[in-house]
C-alpha cells in the first residue's frame, strides 16, 4: 500500500511562564491510501497540534511530514487542493449563509461552484442552505464543516471530531458517509473520542499520548496486542461465590467480585481455575475470556482510566499501566 500521510519524529514545544511544554515529542504516524484511519488520544495529548502542524497552521520544531508524497509544509500549497480538512470545532463567519460560505471557499480555492449544492445535499443541509450560519446548531455547523472539506473532492480527508455535536442519527449518517467516501477511494483520517465509532468505522488507528505514539496498526492488531488475560467465572447457583473467590485469591489470583460472578484478572492459564475449584467440589457454569475493546486499550495505553474518588487533570498521564490499573 502507498502511504498517503507520513509523519516521523514530529516535535513541537511551547514556551510559557511555567517553562517548556512538549506538545509533540517525536510523534510518528503513517496512513495508508484508501483507509479510514482513526487518530485517538486524550485531551491535551497532541492530536489537534498534530493536525494543525500537518496543515501548516503551526510550525513544528523538528520532524518530517509528507502528504500524498509531497513534503509539507514546504509543498503544502501544491497539495492543499487535494486535502480537505476540518480542525477542531467548525469555525465560520456567522452572518453568511451556508451557501455563501461554501461559495466563497470555492472561489478562493478555484473549485467549481456547482460543487456547493452537491456537498450541501450530501451532508443534509440542502433545505437550510440559505440560512445564516449563526442560526445553526453545533451539529449543523459540523455538517457544514464536513461539506467544506468535501468541496474540493479531496484525496485525503482530515476530520477532527466530526461527530461532535451530532445527534445519534447524525452520527450514524456520518459513519455511513465515511464508509462511502472510503469506498470511493478517499483516504480519511478521523480524530475522535467516540471509540465505539472508531472501532466500527476505521481500518487502522494511531493512538497518541503525551505527544508520542503509543500504538498504531490495524484495529484488529492493536486489539490483539492488548488482549486481556482476564476471564469471567460464574458458578452454579447456590455455591458460595465469596468463599470460592477467596480461595482463588489465596492462590494468587487477582479477583474482582461482581454481583453474580467474579473476574480473574491474571488468568494466564484458565485451567488452573477449574482445577483449584474442582478440588473443592466447586464447579463452574461459565468460564469466558474477557475481550478488550478499543476503549480498554485506549484507557490502558494512555493511562486515563478513571479512578473512584480521584479527579484526573488534563495533561496528567499515568505511569506504566496507568493509574487505576
Amino acid at each position: 500500500m502507498t502511504a498517503v500521510l507520513e509523519i516521523s519524529g514530529l516535535r513541537k514545544t511551547y514556551r510559557g511562564r511555567k517553562g517548556v511544554r512538549k506538545a509533540l515529542d517525536g510523534f510518528d504516524m503513517v496512513v495508508e491510501a484508501g483507509q479510514v484511519h482513526g487518530f485517538l488520544g486524550p485531551n491535551g495529548s497532541g492530536k489537534t497540534t498534530t493536525l494543525r502542524t500537518l496543515l501548516g497552521l503551526i510550525k513544528p520544531n523538528d520532524g518530517r511530514m509528507a502528504i500524498l508524497g509531497e513534503e509539507v509544509p514546504r509543498r503544502l500549497p501544491q497539495v492543499a487542493g487535494r486535502v480537505g480538512a476540518i480542525v477542531e470545532s467548525p469555525q465560520f463567519f456567522g452572518n453568511f449563509t451556508a451557501e455563501t460560505t461554501l461559495s466563497l471557499l470555492a472561489d478562493a480555492g478555484g473549485v467549481n461552484p456547482r460543487r456547493v449544492p452537491a456537498v450541501l445535499e450530501l451532508v443534509g443541509l440542502r433545505d437550510r442552505a440559505k440560512d445564516r450560519v449563526k442560526t445553526y446548531s453545533l451539529g449543523m455547523k459540523q455538517r457544514l464543516a464536513v461539506a467544506s472539506a468535501l468541496l474540493k473532492e479531496p484525496k485525503l480527508l482530515i476530520l477532527d471530531e466530526p461527530a461532535n455535536g451530532l445527534d445519534p442519527g447524525g452520527i450514524r449518517e456520518m459513519r455511513t458517509l465515511m464508509g462511502d467516501l472510503a469506498g470511493s477511494g478517499m483516504t480519511v483520517l478521523l480524530s475522535s473520542h467516540i471509540l465505539g465509532e472508531i472501532q466500527l468505522i476505521c481500518d487502522s488507528v494511531t493512538i497518541i499520548s503525551a505527544g508520542r505514539r503509543v500504538a498504531a496498526g490495524s484495529v484488529a492488531d492493536v486489539l490483539a496486542g492488548h488482549t486481556s488475560s482476564a476471564v469471567r467465572v460464574r458458578l452454579e447457583p447456590g455455591v458460595d461465590l465469596l468463599g470460592a473467590a477467596e480461595m482463588l485469591r489465596a492462590a494468587g489470583a487477582v479477583i474482582t467480585i461482581e454481583r453474580d460472578h467474579f473476574t480473574v484478572g491474571n488468568a494466564s492459564n484458565p485451567a488452573q481455575i477449574t482445577k483449584l475449584l474442582a478440588e473443592r467440589q466447586i464447579y463452574v457454569s461459565e468460564l469466558t475470556p474477557v475481550s478488550a475493546d478499543l476503549e480498554d486499550v485506549f484507557l490502558e495505553l494512555t493511562g486515563t482510566a478513571p479512578v473512584d474518588g480521584a479527579s484526573r487533570q488534563v495533561d496528567q498521564v499515568g505511569t506504566q499501566g496507568g493509574w487505576g490499573q
Partner: peptide, 17 residues
C-alpha cells in the same frame, strides 16, 4: 472578524500561503 470567527484559519486550510 475573520480572525475572531476562525474564518481566517479556514481560509488558510484552503490556501496555505
Amino acid at each position: 472578524a475573520e480572525w475572531n470567527s476562525g474564518g481566517m484559519m479556514n481560509l488558510l486550510l484552503w490556501r496555505p500561503q
